[in-house]
């Protein structure tokens, strides 16, 4: 079976590792990737959410032990 590489493989290779997800609305989430699907719905553990305000200086941070991220707000995913 020839396995052609596709973009979602990048995510698969980083299961159980920390990733940075850029989201709509000037937000980012860092977390350990527990699972995902083809919509980019994702489950992250040990997650930290960063909310950037207009003045780029103050960043709001929220920590969550376990979080589900809905795929439609994902812009990009990058391994850390």
């Amino acid at each position: 079976m020839s396995t052609k590489e596709e973009p979602l493989d990048l995510i698969r290779f980083h299961l159980d590792e920390f990733v940075l997800i850029k989201l709509r609305g000037a937000r980012e989430i860092k977390g350990k990737l527990q699972g995902y699907d083809s919509h980019c719905n994702m489950v992250l553990s040990e997650a930290e959410e960063y909310i950037y305000n207009d003045s780029n200086d103050d960043v709001e941070t929220k920590k969550t032990e376990m979080v589900f991220v809905r795929g439609d707000s994902v812009i990009l995913i990058s391994p850390i």
Partner: peptide, 11 residues
């Protein structure tokens, strides 16, 4: 520089 990334199609 941000290295390796996945960009979701709708963006």
């Amino acid at each position: 520089s941000i290295g390796e990334i996945f960009i979701r199609c709708n963006n």
